[in-house]
Design a protein around this nucleic acid. Sequence first.
DNA 1: GTATGATATATCGAAAGTCGATAGTCAAGG
DNA 2: CCTTGACTATCGACTTTCGATATATCATAC
Lengths: 113, 113
Amino acid sequence: MPTSPKPLPAASLHIVLALLDGELHGYALMRRVGELSDGAVKMGPGTLYGTLNRLVDGGLIVETTDRVDRTETERRRYYELTPTGRTVALAELDRLQTLLRHVKRGLAGGATA
Amino acid sequence: MPTSPKPLPAASLHIVLALLDGELHGYALMRRVGELSDGAVKMGPGTLYGTLNRLVDGGLIVETTDRVDRTETERRRYYELTPTGRTVALAELDRLQTLLRHVKRGLAGGATA
DNA sequence: GTATGATATATCGAAAGTCGATAGTCAAGG
DNA sequence: CCTTGACTATCGACTTTCGATATATCATAC
């Protein structure tokens, strides 16, 4: 079972989930991560860029080099999920869904003790 | 807006979610946290007891002292959510639901780029 | 023309959190 | 007895996160 060794840390999780929708550059990722939780999660650059590098090292994302319409002065660095990264992201999504389902089931049952 | 300063760390999150269903003692909490994610999350004692203390300090949980049918030799220490803790737990649950909703919406849209 | 604020990337050190190993007690079963 | 599972607990190493800081470009406004 190579696709679920252990849960990703929070920042990594948010990044790979955000990238499920398509490639993004660092700054956009910061915004998107915030948006995805209606502003509840705020990832600063200190967290972002280190995490990005770790994800690249771990083989979950890659910097896309096939950009076509980019100007010379393009500062943005785009990242996308690798196939492995996508698999992991989907597995994490699943894990969260399972968690919520179980918690909500317990809530419905009612622990009026 | 006193009820959403920032997301709880992973271990704290799992513990308060597990306690939404009712009071539990440490060892049972370890099992329950695993169950809630179908075995994907494994919290060992090293993580558990430190986190438990932090949650007590933070006023999110309390050790229940009103146990009736406990023997003298009872080693178990039961914890339950405080009203604040319950509010935080529910807010976190909400945050996760929002996250999943947004991510899945993006997935449906399709990023065939 | 120049101040300002958003875009954009990057690094540093401190603080916080997590993990795995270890340890001890008690009860029940073989 | 002696092992095994329940149960709480702590330690140190490691990983992750945070906040501040830095730098450069661009658009808008003054």
